[in-house]
Design a protein around this nucleic acid. Structure first.
Lengths: 143, 143
DNA sequence: CTATATAGTCTACATCCGTAAACATTGAAT
DNA sequence: ATTCAATGTTTACGGATGTAGACTATATAG
């Protein structure tokens, strides 16, 4: 059933998706207004991005009178998870722990977020290895 | 003092940097050999990437006889932190907590990594807000 | 019905990226 | 000294990206 070949959303497109996810659905005029304020983009720019997202299959358009209403066809959390997972996959595995710690230090997290993270960490502790090796070189253990 | 305009390292270039960081310094032939094995790249591809990284200022070359030896001019951990911070900056702030939890679930972390994270989280707990608002729309509180 | 505003589609264009061939230079072997 | 192989430099090229103008179709006001 055609597992559509992994949708790549660029940075600019990502901004459009965020708004769409948050609102659930938008018209291009709404989006143009929002992006003009948020990003300083011209209407034409927004049209291009909406068009590209439709073509990529990240958005779906439904015609209502003259205009279309745009709906996301991919979910936000999975998309975020994937973007993050992909990035971390490109980093030295030996350093992801430190990177995560540095990140957590910077981010604003809610009480609940912290609790959930603590629970997840506690659970991983049982099976966590003592060390994680660098995987920057081919073959197996090098550095 | 010319804060050099933020070095942007692409995905392919990142692979080259990882190897350089791990080895401390490399010759292009070494790098070509490693990337041939690790990425399946031709020598020419590696040369291009090394050249671009030099131009971008992420690597420095020192001539030794006929060939150059390449050294990183940016540090690994700060580069990783920055890449990660940038990505999270593009995500809905309301969802970064969940995203982080999903990420931690997937990653392999060492005992020490987990301990450091727990310590960092415990410290944040004191001042953490009850909730974090969505920041996907312009203006202030919308969604 | 007709003119206009509005939304959609097509075209543009410089730059970056991934990937690599072609060409030039030079240290080293004979 | 001459030549070859290794190394660096230049050029290439299609596709993605950011940014946007131009052109077109049509719902709606009058």
């Amino acid at each position: 059933m055609e597992a559509q070949t992994k949708i790549e959303i660029s940075d600019a497109e990502w901004e459009v998706m965020r708004v769409t996810w948050t609102l659930g659905h938008v018209t291009s005029s709404q989006m143009a207004e929002i992006m003009a304020e948020k990003m300083g983009w011209k209407t034409a720019t927004v049209k291009t991005l909406l068009g590209r997202l439709i073509k990529k299959g990240a958005l779906r358009a439904e015609k209502h009178g003259r205009a279309f209403t745009y709906y996301p066809t991919v979910d936000e959390q999975p998309s975020m998870d994937e973007a993050v997972t992909t990035l971390f996959g490109h980093l030295c595995q030996m350093r992801v722990g430190q990177t995560l710690t540095d990140l957590v230090t910077q981010l604003t997290l809610s009480q609940t977020d912290i609790e959930n993270l603590q629970a997840t960490l506690a659970q991983k502790q049982a099976t966590a290895p003592v060390t994680v090796d660098c995987d920057c070189l081919p073959g197996d253990q090098h550095c």
